[in-house]
């Protein structure tokens, strides 16, 4: 099994989001960056699969040098090697095209992405990659087993769950429940220093979209408190005042 895991670097979940440059740039001042939580699940599951049936796990990220700590962390968690495509990840299309260009001649059996990145929330890379590589893509998987060249999957659907199979090679995007994320140990961190990290220059493709500005949600007005002794009044207020029921 040769597995590729797409890793994106995102602001820590506790980040209070603010913007600079007239609301056109995310303010990275004092922000801690982490591996996107879904990508961490994908990486762990990929390692579990290769530990059981042999193979290698490569981690890939599209990002400038400042993403190196995250890709090193992927190596510390257990990835065998890593690739960084040295470019600003402008949009999902650009990211997918860079990864597809790299992956097309590498013969990966399985490619993992996260369900979505918790900063951009695009949720597009898995499908784009599948189409660009002309292989199946299955989103939001909660379980995966590989048997005889076939992926046995479970995925979330609207209002339920589906079991399905996909022929390899294929792309899958990791949803919570897939596994529990691994924390790197000292040995892993030491080993990561000598594992191969290849830096590849981007191949010319253009972004199709461009984020032009950001906006914070309007602050909420004061919360209207209802007396606990008269809790049923909530229903009346939701009907007559808020008009939502």
């Amino acid at each position: 099994m040769k597995i590729l895991v797409c890793i994106s670097q995102v602001p820590d979940t506790t980040t209070k989001v603010t913007f600079t440059d007239n609301n056109t740039k995310f303010n990275t001042q004092g922000v801690q960056f982490i591996i996107n939580p879904y990508d961490e699940l994908a990486l762990t599951r990929a390692l579990e699969i290769t530990e059981k049936q042999g193979g290698t796990v490569s981690a890939i990220t599209v990002g400038l040098a400042d993403t190196e700590p995250s890709i090193r962390k992927a190596l510390a968690i257990g990835a065998h090697d890593a690739i960084r495509i040295n470019a600003e990840p402008i949009d999902g299309f650009f990211v997918a095209e860079q990864i597809a260009n790299y992956a097309k001649n590498e013969g990966f059996d399985l490619i993992f992405t996260g369900r979505e990145s918790i900063d951009y929330n695009g949720g597009m890379v898995a499908g784009l990659l599948g189409e660009m590589l002309n292989i199946p893509s299955v989103n939001v998987i909660t379980a995966i087993e590989i048997e005889n060249g076939m992926a046995h999957l479970e995925r979330d659907i609207d209002g339920g769950r589906e079991k399905l199979t996909a022929q390899l090679p294929c792309v899958v995007s990791a949803q919570k429940e897939l596994t529990e994320p691994r924390i790197p140990n000292m040995r892993g961190i030491m080993a990561a220093r000598t594992k191969p990290l290849k830096v590849v220059e981007p191949t010319g493709s253009q972004a199709n979209t461009q984020t032009t500005s950001f906006e914070l949600p309007a602050p909420k007005g004061a919360c209207k408190l209802i007396d606990a002794a008269d809790a049923g009044k909530l229903i009346e207020l939701l009907h007559h005042e808020a008009k939502v029921i």
Binding site: G92, F93, M124, G127, D156, D158, T209
Partner: peptide
Amino acid sequence: NTYSGKMVAPRVAAKLNAGMVSG
């Protein structure tokens, strides 16, 4: 942008070489 929508939309975008925005 339902679960099914999320599965098809990016593939449609790649087929048509279209810029896509989700959500």
